[in-house]
Design a protein around this nucleic acid. Structure first.
Lengths: 146, 146
DNA sequence: AATGATAATGATAATAATTATCATTTATTG
DNA sequence: CAATAAATGATAATTATTATCATTATCATT
């Protein structure tokens, strides 16, 4: 991978955000200051960085791709109301992966966990009156036992 | 929600599959027998069913939407080689969610876990020589401690 | 069983995010 | 500094999904 001004700009711009922007959002942000950067360059490099493990890619619940410059082990929380993605800096036990390998007879190399609910801000704003009218597509907590 | 012949066909067709098809895949399958069903109807109803909690929607690592007629608590394993989605019928402890709520100060209502790696079939076929050239976008196991 | 209200359907247009193409520019290496 | 090949940017292409809307089917009520 060759160096370029654009790559530096993209990486720096991503580092300035903690909201886990999409490629498009980051492009628009960068484009304000560097109007001559191309959309393809931003998409291309973000994906390349993710492949190389320099950054992380998060697939949102609606299928959109978000990017995260933080490589530290952590998971994500997505607010069902405002859609913002927050970090959840916890680790899970290896025994869970062992159990999953046992059940599936598959070799597991990576895993991903996403929580969903209402963020503090939205809960305050809506005073608990927010109705989950979106698809409840994930495992409901009520169904999970330990 | 009103009843219809199409809804029955779609639900039945989904039940016949354990590969977690996309809306498009299911449409093509159904279309073979019922050539007069529309694409929009399949997309519409699958999403509606997921909203109602009659089926589940899984967002693949590439952002594609897959559907699952099984409502039992379980997670998924996606093969990095062939892309097939397998069920992982395990449960996690509530303490993990409690911990996540504590860290984020958010109210968690649901969670989702996806494992990734090589399925038995692909491992045998490629004899362990498969190279992960795809984006390693999730948390690498090596980074996770218990 | 006929009626009427309205939800569901299907054909197709529209959308939106992302990727491919390719001529031009830029970085790296000897 | 020149040669080589990768990177860029403009734009076309792609692809999955959704919106539109005229038509049809469903279902509660008569």
């Amino acid at each position: 991978m060759r160096n370029s001004k654009q790559k530096e700009i993209i990486l720096r711009a991503l580092g300035e955000h903690c909201i886990h922007p999409t490629a498009d959002e980051l492009y628009n942000y960068i484009h304000q200051e560097y109007s001559d950067i191309g959309v393809a360059t931003v998409y291309r490099n973000l994906n390349k960085f993710a492949e190389k493990g320099i950054i992380r890619k998060i697939i949102g619940l609606d299928g959109s791709s978000h990017f995260d410059s933080c490589l530290e082990p952590h998971y994500h929380f997505i607010c069902s109301c405002c859609g913002k993605i927050y970090d959840v800096p916890i680790n899970i036990g290896k025994d869970l992966i062992a159990k999953a390998e046992e059940f599936t007879d598959c070799k597991i190399t990576s895993m991903n966990m996403t929580f969903r609910g209402l963020c503090r801000e939205c809960e305050d704003k809506h005073n608990g009156k927010f109705v989950f009218d979106e698809a409840e597509t994930e495992m409901l907590l009520t169904a999970s036992t330990s």
